[in-house]
C-alpha cells in the first residue's frame, strides 16, 4: 500500500509518515504544498491520500476538487484544524472520504487509514483469507497451517497487497508502484526476491507466476 501525505508542517508530515510506515504497511510519500501534492497525486497510483486543508499555493479543498475532477478515486483522509461543521460538510461534499480534526491521535489515524484502504479494495473484513493463508491486517500477523507469526516488513507489504487483490493477476509494475515510495532504492529483481521468499515460507503454489503478466495469490492448499 502506498500513501501520500500532503501537509505543510513538515515535521507533522514526517511524524505521520513514520507512524504509517511503522504501524501499518504503507509506503509513504510527502508533499508540503498544494501544487506539488496535486502533481504527485495525479501521477502515482496512491492507495490513500492524507490531506491537510490549509496549504500554501493550493488550498486543500481546491486540490481535492481537482483530484476528483481528474477522475482519481483514491481515498482521501482530510486533516483539518477547522472543526466547524460547515468545513467538514464542504470537505465531504467535495469528495473526501474521512476526516480528522487536529490535534488527533496517531493510532486513530492509522486505523482510519487502514479502514479506508480496505473499503477501497472492497474488503470489509480486516482478516484476509486466501486459500490456506490468513492475513490479519489489524495486527499484521499471518496465519498458515495453524501457525501465526509476523513477517519482515517488505514481505508482509507484498503479501498484503497481493491478498487485497486476491483472484486477479497483479503486474510487477503495480507491485513496485504500490510497495515503494520515491526514496526507496529498487532493484530490477526485487519483486522476484520477495516472491520467492514468500514461496519458501508458505509453499511454492501460494503465489503463481503468470508469464508476461504478473503474479496471482492463490494461497496454499492444505
Amino acid at each position: 500500500m502506498r500513501a501520500l501525505i500532503i501537509e505543510d508542517e513538515e515535521r507533522l508530515a514526517h511524524s505521520i509518515g513514520r507512524m504509517l510506515e511503522e504501524h501499518t504497511s504503507f509506503a509513504v510519500d510527502i508533499a508540503t504544498d498544494g501544487d506539488g501534492g496535486l502533481h504527485m497525486a495525479l501521477g502515482n497510483p496512491y492507495d490513500l491520500i492524507v490531506l491537510d486543508l490549509m496549504l500554501p499555493h493550493l488550498d486543500g479543498l481546491a486540490l481535492l476538487e481537482k483530484l476528483r475532477a481528474a477522475g482519481k478515486r483514491t481515498p482521501v483522509l482530510v486533516l483539518t484544524a477547522r472543526d466547524t461543521t460547515q468545513d467538514i460538510i464542504r470537505g465531504l461534499d467535495l469528495g473526501c472520504d474521512d476526516y480528522l480534526t487536529k490535534p488527533f491521535k496517531m493510532a486513530e489515524l492509522c486505523a482510519r487509514a487502514k479502514a479506508l484502504v480496505r473499503r477501497a479494495y472492497d474488503r470489509p473484513d480486516p482478516v484476509l483469507k486466501v486459500g490456506g493463508v490468513e492475513i490479519n491486517t489489524a495486527t499484521r500477523t499471518v496465519t498458515c497451517r495453524g501457525k501465526t507469526g509476523r513477517l519482515p516488513a517488505m514481505e508482509y507489504r507484498l503479501l498484503e497487497y497481493l491478498a487485497m487483490r486476491a483472484g486477479e493477476v497483479v503486474s510487477k509494475t503495480d507491485i513496485i508502484e504500490h510497495l515503494y515510495d520515491f526514496d526507496s532504492e529498487t532493484f530490477s529483481n526485487v519483486v522476484e526476491v520477495y516472491v520467492s521468499s514468500l514461496r519458501r515460507r508458505f509453499g511454492a503454489e501460494t503465489i503463481q507466476t503468470i508469464r508476461g503478466q504478473g503474479y496471482i495469490l492463490t494461497g496454499a492448499h492444505t
Binding site: 507533522l12 511524524s15 513514520r18 511503522e22 484544524a81 490535534p103 488527533f104 491521535k105
Partner: peptide, 23 residues
C-alpha cells in the same frame, strides 16, 4: 476561531511527535 486554530498547529505537532516517540 483563528486563535484556537493557531494554537492547534503547535499542539498537533507536539502531540504527534510524542505519540510517535511513544509508539
Amino acid at each position: 476561531a483563528d486563535a484556537s486554530h493557531e494554537l492547534r498547529t503547535p499542539l498537533t505537532l507536539a502531540e504527534s511527535t510524542l505519540q510517535l516517540a511513544r509508539s
